[in-house]
């Protein structure tokens, strides 16, 4: 039984499921963020408050953290296995044709993780009381951050990288879960592309619009 639960294929399933769960969370987060553009702190802060206090959301939040941890932990475990499976590399770089960005998932994933940590320091840890700030007014926290040009550039770069990660992630999850075939896969690839563009662009335009309005 252990062999089945901890085989490489099982690890990939768990990673894919966790990843898909995170993919559902992203549009929700984006939807709330877009309230920043309403020009009024009230709706955004209300939404943030709701997310921080509603019991069901609390449960989902635990699941979310679990998904993040599992996704990362399994990703690392598999990566180590993968590195170990070729102790001596090639001297000529492998030129085999591959799916875009699929070779760099560990690096794009790692970059997203770094952003996540920064993001936690900026918001989530305020909520937990680890970092100083007003958890009831994330609206102004966000506006302050978006006023720092360096932060915005980092923010954009991270979402670009997230886009790379998402593009392969979505179609790959379907493949891992055994859901791709000659008929659906072309469609899944298009959806992956649209998703990988829509989400990062959605996040990225927020500081841009704020700047333009100003």
């Amino acid at each position: 039984m252990n062999k089945i639960l901890f085989s490489a294929v099982s690890k990939k399933f768990v990673m894919a499921l966790a990843g898909l769960f995170l993919l559902i969370f992203l549009p929700v987060h984006l939807g709330i963020n877009l309230m920043l553009l309403r020009g009024d702190p009230e709706p955004f802060n209300n939404a943030a408050h709701f997310m921080a206090t509603f019991p069901l959301v609390k449960v989902v939040e635990i699941l979310l953290f679990l998904a993040i941890i599992v996704h990362i932990a399994y990703g690392l475990l598999l990566q180590v296995q993968n590195w170990m499976s070729r102790p001596v590399g090639y001297s000529v770089r492998n030129k085999s044709e591959t799916s875009a960005f699929s070779r760099f998932m560990i690096w794009t994933g790692g970059s997203v993780l770094i952003f996540l940590v920064i993001h936690f320091f900026n918001f989530y840890f305020i909520k937990l009381g680890i970092v100083e700030g007003d958890p009831e007014n994330f609206y102004s926290v966000a506006y302050q951050l978006f006023n720092i040009p360096g932060y915005v550039i980092l923010y954009w770069v991270c979402f670009l990288v997230l886009g790379f990660h998402l593009y392969h992630a979505l179609q790959s999850a379907f493949q891992t879960l055994g859901l791709s075939n000659e008929f659906w896969t072309p469609l899944i690839k298009v959806i992956s592309l649209l998703y990988a563009i829509a989400i990062p662009v959605g996040f990225a335009i927020i500081p841009l619009v704020i700047w333009l309005i100003k």
Partner: peptide, 30 residues
Amino acid sequence: GSCSNTGACEAQCPKQIKLFNIARLNREYI
């Protein structure tokens, strides 16, 4: 190693065996 769904195998397979087989394998495993 494990599968990262990069598709390099399919691209280099001299018999052009399709990546869909890996999806089927995953399905069978589930």
